[in-house]
Amino acid sequence: MTPNTRRAVGLALTSLTGLAAFIIIAMLGIILFNVVENGAGGVTWTFLSKPPEDGMMGGGIFPAIFGTAALTLLMTVAVMPVGVLTAVYLHEYAPPNSLSARFVRVAVVNLAGVPSIVFGLFGLGFFILFVGQGMDRALGHEEMYWAQPGILWASLTLAVLTLPVVIVSTEEALRAVPMDHRTASLALGATQSQTLGRVVLPGALPGILTGAVLAISRGAGEVAPILFTGAAYFLPDLPTHLNSQFMHLGYHTYVMATQSPDVEATRPLLYSTVLVLLLLTFALNLVAVIIRTRTRRKAAGSH
């Protein structure tokens, strides 16, 4: 290669990689700009606090915000104990490279790769038809009580979906707790469970919280898993029971985008709804990033 061709190849590669990176920024920029430009005007207090009116062509999105919040809260309550306990088992109790630990890890990786619509169908089949009907039969409900779509089943379906996020980030957090702290604790006559409760989990807490926030922001934006398991097209009332259906920001966006009788009238509302959903997810991600950097700084300060 002559120096000239070498320089040309170098230049081409620099511009290609730079272009690829630029496309990412441009995409995000275009989406954000478009949504903010068209949606920001519509986000008023009325919009945030009123239910939809006039067949989705007026009013606000309060039931959808409330439904999303309640759904993610229930999901978090369900996913955190199971996810954290699984990670603790994998990292603290299972012998390294044991068959069971490897089996669980394979399951976690595959769970993370399942398309979210499949989780929706799974939720319908397993939670509503299998568990729900079983509960109705066992508890003696004459009419369908548990065997119907509701916020409990939707949140449990989302919990299964976000389980890998929690397991992976908790395991990472446990790995970051120095082995020295465990040996020091055991050498002082602490049992393994005391070491876990007093040294390991407190040390891993920030990482576990980061995992929780990431799971929440993932779960809050998913629509497919809740399509068949509890999300409602339109409900003026807020969910009051575990088997109530609920409105949801993501599903509401889908409904307004595809089911509106008057596209022109719905468009501003649609933009504002999307903006609210985006802000919610970004805010949650930001919280996760802040927790993580704080922990890193603390860890760096300890040496």
Partner: peptide, 11 residues
């Protein structure tokens, strides 16, 4: 009891 090579106080 045991004291280790690298000091390892808890945070």
């Amino acid at each position: 009891g045991m004291v280790f090579q690298k000091s390892n106080p808890f945070p």
